[in-house]
Design a protein around this nucleic acid. Structure first.
Length: 161
DNA sequence: GCCAACGTTGGC
DNA sequence: GCCAACGTTGGC
């Protein structure tokens, strides 16, 4: 008999500028590669901690007063080499990355829900419940960050009204 | 291996 | 479009 424990679901917040790739784009595409991340912390989190079935919030960054969480998605494929790093025509080619040992990874995400109204950054900052969420803290620039289950659930509940 | 210069992110 | 934060790069 196996005694291995089942890993519990992890929760994440993934940022994208809506002009670059929005929740509506994901709704249309259903499943998409979350590529283009070029940060070692993010790479390591994707590689070591992000698992199939993990639940994610989709966050629109740089969107003025609409900046905030706009929907949910889930991880459907775990970390694999990001093909855009080898594509000179992509947004972020990395000529120093060795195809034998790729430097950058991506995952696949599947659309699950678009909120009727975004839960804005402004709103999150105003509620002390969210004060230890990285996304509301100043200076944070990671495009992928782990979040707590309670925060995920409260944001989803709030979006439902 | 220090650290200044530089580039990028992202809120405002 | 400004600027603070901060990761990365490269000269030494």
């Amino acid at each position: 008999m196996s005694t291995k424990k089942t890993r519990s679901t992890h929760y994440w917040l993934l940022k994208s500028e809506p002009e670059c790739y929005s929740i509506d784009d994901l709704k249309r595409d259903k499943v998409e590669m979350w590529d283009g991340t070029r940060n070692y912390q993010v790479r390591n989190m994707m590689r070591d901690q992000m698992k199939k079935g993990d639940l994610c919030l989709f966050y629109h960054s740089n969107a003025g007063t609409k900046t905030g969480v706009v929907g949910t998605m889930k991880i459907v494929k775990e970390a694999y080499p990001d093909p855009t790093q080898f594509d000179p025509n992509s947004e972020h080619p990395d000529p120093k990355s060795d195809p034998e040992n790729p430097r950058w990874l991506c995952v696949d995400v599947q659309f699950t829900h678009k909120f009727a109204q975004p839960v804005t950054l402004q709103e999150l900052k105003q509620d002390p419940f969210f004060k230890d969420m990285t996304v509301v803290q100043k200076g944070n620039r990671l495009s992928v960050m782990p979040i707590k289950k309670k925060h995920y659930e409260k944001i989803v509940a709030r979006a439902k009204g």
